[in-house]
Design a protein around this nucleic acid. Structure first.
Lengths: 233, 233
DNA sequence: TCGGCCATAGTGGTCCGACCACCTTGCCGG
DNA sequence: CCGGCAAGGTGGTCGGACCACTATGGCCGA
């Protein structure tokens, strides 16, 4: 048995862990440039192919970023970078898990909206209003959806918890929302959605966290219940 | 310009999207075996190296699973499979983001505990008690941590939302908890933790969701406040 | 006949070397 | 002094070869 090379798992997997460890131990700072693929491969004693797979893995995790012709860099390791893959879950989920995801979103969205009610700045509030009016001024579903997403995104950011905002971003990814809302809006839910958004807006203006929490929970809950009914019968 | 091959992004990235689309459209069922790497590479018109990188990427996302000597399979696409990378966020986060993660955990954990209070079965309750007593019967920090994790895991499962349980699992990943708790427990927080766990347990027995929510929120909130103080000065 | 062993084909895992596309740098000429 | 151009360096792609492991089926012995 060779103590210098425990030989656990594939060499690629080992490389992934080693680089992750380097970052965890602070030997690689956010934004820093890594050695070249070729050098890294030599350092870890593996081939460039395997090293590239490891880099690819860390890239999809949002830990590394490869710039063609320039080099490999550690990302800023911000919530957005690392939670990007969260959207994949939403995209590939179907049936009962969609309800579960909406339940998670209801919990987080209501909390975020409550926090936002207490902390939102005038500028952010103005932006919320901008998307609200734009959303009500058009009949194009695409545009409505875009402003709807932006509406909630601004609120999530105003809550002051970037991690929570990033998770909510993933839970509201374009394809996820589009898939669910297509059916929901076909049942003439536009007016109801408008009223719910208005209620959230009022609560933000009043800086009333409890009202904001209730309004947001009801808003997401409506969709959640509709989807539950769709699946149930 | 070739309309048959839009040439957007790298070939590997395209391959990732194509396979993801196949699964999204239902052309690939969970558990199903994919063609060989070599065949897939030919089908998508790329080299095996690039195809392997795409497969590696989908593997770390928890979408595919490669079995050496057997083949490549689509995972069951359960919440646990897809949210496994969530733990990486916790592992690589430091400073203020740790507080944000704990804030998210507090929100989800309190909700999950409340749900569990209403739905928990006698068997699950017995398991909760098992870990509770085991946790109080030893002084080995390692063992305490293990039972602590299991304690909350059972509760999360009892809540009936697998997605939420999977997220909480990521937020409580071993290294994350170990890093934070090391310092927290050094300040003689054992007794307080014991009391908080007991309070959660009582609320579960009484099937009292509100009490359970409050107890869980306080439990996580304690650590959150301690960590906030650590960073603040 | 039945059971287990083993050769074999097929699969993912690894490595190598070459070339391409792109960015960066710095030299050179205006 | 400045702008453009050329060369070197980097990640991206390719093809082929071999290794490690699994699964299958036939063969041999009981």
């Amino acid at each position: 048995m060779d103590e210098t090379a425990p030989q656990k798992g594939t060499v690629t997997q080992r490389a992934i862990e080693q680089i992750k460890a380097m970052i965890g131990e602070g030997r690689l700072e956010p934004g820093q440039r890594l050695p070249t693929e070729r050098d890294l491969a030599v350092q870890l004693g593996i081939s460039r192919s395997s090293m590239r797979e490891a880099i690819r893995a860390l890239t999809v995790m949002g830990v590394l970023e490869a710039r063609h012709g320039s080099g490999i860099y550690v990302t800023q390791l911000e919530a957005g970078d690392l939670l990007e893959t969260f959207g994949v879950v939403a995209d590939l989920s179907r049936g009962p898990r969609l309800v579960e995801l909406l339940e998670v979103r209801r919990v987080l969205e209501s909390t975020a909206t409550a926090l936002a009610a207490a902390r939102i700045t005038p500028d952010q509030l103005a932006e919320v209003e901008k998307h609200l009016t734009a959303m009500n001024a058009t009949d194009d579903p695409e545009e409505i959806l875009a402003h709807d997403l932006a509406f909630h995104r601004v609120i999530a950011v105003a809550a002051g918890n970037d991690t929570m905002a990033a998770i909510l971003e993933g839970l509201s990814s374009r394809t996820f929302r589009a898939r669910v809302w297509r059916g929901y809006q076909e049942e003439g839910a536009f007016e109801r959605t408008r009223r719910e958004h208005a209620a959230i807006h009022r609560a933000l203006i009043a800086h009333d966290p409890e009202a904001a929490r209730a309004a947001a929970a009801a808003h997401v809950g409506e969709v959640e219940e509709w989807l539950r009914a769709q699946l149930g019968g």
